[in-house]
Design a binder for these strands. Sequence first.
RNA 1: GCCCCCGUCGUCUAGCGGCCUAGGACGCCGCCCUCUCACGGCGGUAGCGGCGGUUCGAAUCCGCUCGGGGGUACCA
Length: 527
Amino acid sequence: MGDRLHDTAAWRRHSHRHPCRRRPAGPRQRCHRPGRGDRPADEPGGQAMTVRLRVAPSPTGDPHVGTAYMSLFNLAFVRQQGGQFVLRIEDTDRARFQADSEQQVFDMLAWLGLQWDEGPDKGGPYAPYRQSERLDTYTPYVEQLLAQGNAYHCWCTPARLQQMREDQQARKVPTGYDRLCVGKTREQRAELPGCSDVPVVRMLVPDDAPLSFVDLIRGQVNAPRPDDQVILKADGFPTYHLAVVVDDHLMGITHVVRGEEWISSTPKHVLLYDWLGWERPAFAHMPLLRNVDKSKISKRKNPAARLTWFVEQGYLPEALLNFLGLLGYSLPSGEEIFSFAEMSASFDWTRVNTVGPVFDLDKLGWLNGHYLRALAPEDLQARLIPFLRAAGLYDDSAAHRSLLAGAGPLIQTRMAVLSECVDLLRFLFVTDREFVVQDAAREKSLGDAGPVLLALAEALAPLEEWTTASVQTAMDAALIDRLGLKRGKAYAPVRAAVCGSLISPPLPESMALLGQQRVLARLRAAL
RNA sequence: GCCCCCGUCGUCUAGCGGCCUAGGACGCCGCCCUCUCACGGCGGUAGCGGCGGUUCGAAUCCGCUCGGGGGUACCA
């Protein structure tokens, strides 16, 4: 594989942060990492290596927001370095596999504009990119490990293993496989209880297994001593640990970027790299996105854990991306509104935080509003249509198109998410038969509004020109000048009668769009 | 239970031993604008988990403690 952009180079490049404080006690070595801008010479041989990163989701349900989060950071680095980004589907868990999940992953990443260079759908020099299609690539390595004495067969039944763990917990000792099967032939093992027919293959983890590694984000990290991890399941599928190492190596992955939850299994992976004689990639463990209660973000506790939720709610992909970039990360400039290109240009692993950020929708709503307001009128309309259509309000007729063109600008500052357009614009698109005045609006604004509505109807009926200006002029003349009302007081009942709600887009504009006939009909209906 | 990771306003963050009586953003509160709701403008609220060290000086370094999280699977 030659020289990759290895740990130290990438590590040295940043790192004013993470002083030696996380190094284990013992003989203290002084950190001597240069500060920012003090870049080391290029790669050995004067040739910059191409970085290759990957995201490897499991198709086990709705695409997870964590996949987008990881992809964003992977890609920010890849594009900065001019490398490649690989999408690999890790479908070794047959029990949780869901057929349509993979396509949803493609769709969601594409929606976000996170484009991968190689993957199951677009192929590439290291195809196939689905682990289930790579089954025979793993077996030689299992054989090798077995032959080298780094792995062994284990016939223990799940029941026995569970019993064993319970005993260990009861005795307050670390849980782990007790190596009953080590050094035994199938026949020898069969004489003992809890023996199954089909064996699995386990790693024989040595006592001196390396437990610490350098992390691009955290510096030196210590991880727990691994158990004798199963690498080949009874069903013939490799476990994640074997598959990820083999695939990452074979696919030339230079930087393994994944969630913090993987820190504890990194020693297993390091061991496999070493046993197989492969160069280790650089590791970066991202902080975990959290629910409001600080637990690892889950679909159960947080609707936003499902990527499709953002589409359903009407978040803009650019806003979600920006928001994700703000979680656990900040630009050197301090700017909080930024594009992917801006993030990528200044990207720096050491600026990634080690604390898991709470995924809080408030700020996303604000950001989304910001991007919403920046949309060109036609763009906004196009994005609104699916929501209006789904609500049964929009049929794409010329009349509807024209209404929408007029209404878009009126609600552009009034939405945090696109789906809110439905409630905001219902009064405009709803048929006369279906139009209703909400109870709250009726009670609050229509109680004694008869004279006001009547006066207005009389003033508007003869109007020959029906525009925002003419409506407003006539309305103000009738209600403010003649009846002596304040505008706020005067408009409230009109709003209720015409829009059916306590809140609405600006009234004269709304009435102009609605049209004279419908306005008059609603005013009279409210009398 | 055992192992590992992490601890700055409610939330996202800046901070890299003196520039910190800790800065910004979201949220919240108030005021302005105003036909409602928003947008926009202005102002305010609120934080270094605790205790010990090191140092002339600590949010920044060290230790302990407390708290949170993750892992502990023939899931990923």
